[in-house]
Simulated scan of single mutants.
Amino acid sequence: MDFSWDLLLNAVASGIMLGGFYAAVAVGITIAFGMLDIVNIAHPAFIILGSFLAYLSINSMGVDPFFAAMLFAVLGFFFGRYFYRAYYHFFEKRGDDSLQGLAFFFGIMFIVEISLVLIFGVDYRLIDLPYLAKTYEIGFVQIPLRLAAPAVVGVLMVLAIQLYLSKTFTGRAIQAVAQDLEAVRFVGANPIKTKEIAFGIAVGTAIIAGMLLIVIQSVEPSIGREFIGRAFAICVLGGMASLPGTLVAAMILGVAETLTSTFLGPSWSPAVAFGLLLLTLAFRPAGIFGR
């Protein structure tokens, strides 16, 4: 493909917008894996669950999915809290929180996928929102609202969670719980309750990310597997427990994917996440914002 500056600028702009969405996808992994040391492989399945909840909200209830996402995110938060209680009772409490816990999350992922297939089938679904069909032009750069709106929501969500983690007692306890469990107890916080709240937030963000996904593209029940590698790559690249790192890493991955897709072909773009992950592990295992 011939090089042109307008093509480059559009690829970078699309990559930044895609990165905003990727940040929404990966923030739950950063919380669960980076802060709580829980390898939640089922996270993409919760994302797809959020996509189909958004699909139902507009097609069955006539409710705008951006509005419905707030309600479903709250329900996801409480579901995540009870989900963590079960995980803690059967695995963490007994010390079996590694391989057996990983198998547990794999099982949950397939249960969610199969349930969605039985309910919705294997057909692709897409949300058609007329007000998102607009495309704005800034010089040579095109800004499709279908991609820009989810990017803005994703960035705002990450910033809001970072503000909560840094400015509230519970938020600071969440950041500390994976580093020093006893220190959390000494300052008067219940570490199990703290991890429960954190995991609830992680699931709530997955529901919102799912709503953003079905706005951007059509989805089917097994498509969430495509985001496993991306989410963990962003988490590691950003610095495991760093939300600012997650945001920066998501932007890097988004731009890298769109540049690869534009100038080398879309078949190469899925390899970018794993390539960046391998380079990070080789040259900076702590990640961009890691200590």
Score class of each variant (00 low, 15 high):
residue 1 M to I: 12
residue 4 S to G: 10
residue 7 L to D: 06
residue 8 L to Q: 12
residue 11 A to Q: 12
residue 12 V to L: 08
residue 13 A to Y: 12
residue 13 A to F: 13
residue 16 I to W: 07
residue 19 G to K: 06
residue 22 Y to V: 00
residue 28 G to N: 08
residue 29 I to M: 14
residue 32 A to H: 01
residue 33 F to E: 00
residue 35 M to T: 04
residue 38 I to S: 05
residue 39 V to Q: 10
residue 42 A to H: 01
residue 48 I to S: 07
residue 54 A to D: 02
residue 55 Y to C: 07
residue 58 I to W: 05
residue 58 I to L: 13
residue 61 M to G: 02
residue 64 D to H: 14
residue 66 F to I: 14
residue 66 F to D: 03
residue 68 A to I: 04
residue 68 A to L: 03
residue 70 M to I: 15
residue 70 M to Y: 09
residue 72 F to P: 04
residue 72 F to K: 02
residue 77 F to E: 11
residue 78 F to K: 10
residue 79 F to Y: 15
residue 80 G to S: 04
residue 82 Y to S: 13
residue 85 R to V: 04
residue 88 Y to Q: 07
residue 90 F to M: 08
residue 92 E to M: 13
residue 93 K to W: 12
residue 96 D to V: 13
residue 97 D to Y: 15
residue 101 G to H: 09
residue 104 F to V: 11
residue 105 F to H: 06
residue 108 I to Q: 04
residue 112 V to Q: 02
residue 114 I to Q: 14
residue 114 I to D: 15
residue 123 D to M: 10
residue 128 D to T: 10
residue 134 K to C: 00
residue 136 Y to K: 06
residue 138 I to T: 06
residue 139 G to V: 13
residue 139 G to R: 10
residue 140 F to N: 14
residue 140 F to W: 12
residue 142 Q to V: 07
residue 143 I to A: 06
residue 145 L to N: 03
residue 147 L to I: 13
residue 148 A to R: 01
residue 151 A to T: 06
residue 161 I to H: 03
residue 161 I to V: 15
residue 165 L to P: 05
residue 165 L to Q: 04
residue 171 G to H: 03
residue 172 R to Q: 14
residue 174 I to V: 14
residue 178 A to L: 08
residue 179 Q to W: 01
residue 181 L to K: 11
residue 181 L to G: 01
residue 182 E to C: 03
residue 183 A to Q: 08
residue 184 V to E: 00
residue 187 V to R: 09
residue 190 N to Q: 05
residue 194 T to I: 11
residue 195 K to R: 15
residue 200 G to H: 06
residue 205 T to I: 10
residue 205 T to Y: 06
residue 206 A to Y: 08
residue 206 A to R: 05
residue 208 I to V: 15
residue 209 A to K: 08
residue 210 G to I: 10
residue 214 I to V: 14
residue 215 V to A: 14
residue 217 Q to I: 12
residue 220 E to A: 13
residue 221 P to S: 07
residue 222 S to N: 10
residue 222 S to E: 10
residue 223 I to Q: 08
residue 226 E to H: 09
residue 226 E to S: 14
residue 226 E to N: 11
residue 227 F to E: 03
residue 227 F to V: 10
residue 232 F to S: 06
residue 239 G to T: 06
residue 240 M to R: 13
residue 240 M to D: 00
residue 241 A to K: 11
residue 241 A to R: 13
residue 241 A to Y: 01
residue 247 L to F: 15
residue 251 M to K: 05
residue 257 E to N: 09
residue 258 T to Q: 15
residue 262 T to W: 08
residue 262 T to S: 14
residue 262 T to K: 05
residue 263 F to G: 04
residue 266 P to Q: 10
residue 267 S to I: 13
residue 269 S to Y: 02
residue 270 P to R: 07
residue 275 G to L: 04
residue 275 G to W: 03
residue 275 G to I: 01
residue 276 L to N: 06
residue 276 L to C: 08
residue 278 L to I: 15
residue 281 L to M: 14
residue 281 L to F: 03
residue 282 A to N: 09
residue 284 R to F: 11
residue 285 P to K: 14
residue 291 R to A: 12
residue 291 R to Q: 12
